[in-house]
Amino acid sequence: MVYIMEIHTDGGCRGNGRPGAIGAAAAAFKKRNGTYGKAWTRSLPRDDPPPTNQRAELTAIILALELALEKLEKLNMNPYLDVKIYSDSRYAIDCMTIWIYKWTRNGWINAAGNEVVNRDLLEEASDLDDKLKEVGDMDYVWISREKNQYADRCCNYAMDIQ
């Protein structure tokens, strides 16, 4: 049996990378009928490193991966998973589908010869991704902002209440 999960994510930051910046991430499962279920949000730490849009988008991916693993644990069966994580961040999608493999082979050094930014989050996401790939398929799909409005609203609400 195949169990399908579609999770929409978004991350945002106000005051990107500056002192006092606030950031949040959101993830929501899309139901078979096209509506969304409950959304989960997470505030980014305000200290070191300061919140950025990129950190928020990667945190949203991590949140989605954690939720998929939690949902799997609650199932009374061991299905084959088909997980799709949707994001309007090309950075986050490219990190998880292209660059992470190059960076791990290069010892977390980027093409410019510098340490990869957000390595801590990328390693966490990679570990969670590996766990899900043990029980099924993982895909990361870029979507336009127009198709990601629910996750965007949830993320903005999480920043509004900080």
Rank of each mutant, 00 (worst) to 15 (best):
P51I: 05
Y86P: 04
D152A: 04
G15T: 03
A92G: 01
E70K: 12
E146D: 14
A92E: 02
C154L: 12
D94T: 09
D120G: 10
M159T: 00
D130Y: 10
N110Y: 01
L121M: 09
A112L: 15
S89V: 00
A26Y: 04
I85R: 00
A68K: 01
A21D: 00
V2P: 11
G20N: 04
C154Q: 14
I7S: 03
D129E: 14
A25L: 05
L81R: 02
E146T: 09
G11Y: 04
D139C: 11
A92Y: 01
I98S: 15
N156V: 10
L63C: 03
I109G: 07
A56H: 00
L128A: 04
C155F: 09
P50R: 14
S43R: 14
E66M: 06
A56M: 05
E146M: 10
R18Y: 13
D137P: 05
L122P: 06
E73H: 11
T41L: 11
A27W: 02
P45W: 08
R145I: 05
I62P: 05
T104D: 15
W142A: 05
L72F: 13
A56C: 07
G113Q: 06
L67V: 10
N78A: 12
W40H: 15
L75W: 02
R18P: 07
R14N: 09
K133I: 06
I100D: 08
I62T: 06
Y86S: 02
Y150T: 07
M5W: 11
V116D: 06
I100Q: 09
W40R: 13
G20L: 06
A151C: 06
I61E: 02
A111N: 09
A24R: 00
E123K: 07
S43F: 12
E123M: 10
A21T: 00
E134P: 04
A64H: 01
A39Y: 11
A28Q: 14
G37V: 05
E6N: 15
W40S: 14
I109A: 02
E70L: 12
T59I: 05
E70F: 06
K147S: 14
M77C: 12
R119A: 12
V141G: 07
R32N: 15
Q54H: 11
L72M: 10
N118S: 04
P19W: 05
M1T: 12
R153Q: 13
W99A: 10
T35F: 14
P19R: 05
A125R: 03
S89P: 07
K84H: 11
N118F: 09
R153F: 08
A68V: 01
I143Q: 01
A112D: 11
L63K: 00
A68W: 02
V83L: 01
K131D: 13
E123S: 00
E115F: 10
W40E: 13
M77Q: 15
E115Q: 15
V116H: 00
T41G: 10
R153L: 13
D82T: 02
Y3A: 11
P51G: 07
R105I: 07
V117S: 14
Y101T: 03
D94H: 10
Q162R: 13
S87P: 10
